[in-house]
C-alpha cells in the first residue's frame, strides 16, 4: 500500500565523497533507522536540484527528498507491504 505524505522531516546524514548517505530520520516523534538505500536519483524543480532517495528500514519503504537550496528534507511517500 502506497501513501503520499509530503511532510517535512529531519534527517541525519553521512557523506561518502560527494555522495549524501541518509542514515536515519525522525518523523511523527519516531526515529526511523535506514537499513538500505535502494535507489537514488536527482532531478530539478525550477532552479532547485532535488536529491531523491528510496530507503528501507527493513519493513517499510520510504521516498525522501533533499532540496539543497532550501536546505530541507521531505518525506514524500511511504509504502508498506
Amino acid at each position: 500500500m502506497k501513501n503520499l505524505v509530503e511532510e517535512r522531516i529531519k534527517v541525519l546524514v553521512g557523506f561518502l565523497g560527494d555522495k549524501i548517505i541518509p542514515l536515519r530520520f525522525s518523523w511523527k516523534g519516531r526515529t526511523i533507522k535506514i537499513k538500505e538505500i535502494t535507489y537514488s536519483w536527482k532531478d530539478r524543480q525550477g532552479i532547485s536540484p532535488l536529491h531523491h532517495f528510496t530507503v528501507s528500514d527493513g519493513q517499510n519503504l520510504y521516498e525522501i527528498c533533499y532540496n539543497p537550496i532550501l536546505s530541507h528534507w521531505t518525506l514524500a511517500k511511504i509504502e508498506c507491504e
Binding site: 538500505e36 535507489y39 528501507s56
Partner: peptide, 10 residues
C-alpha cells in the same frame, strides 16, 4: 528494472 531495484517488494 529500475522500479524493481528501487522497491524490493516488486
Amino acid at each position: 528494472s529500475v522500479e524493481q531495484k528501487a522497491n524490493p517488494l516488486l
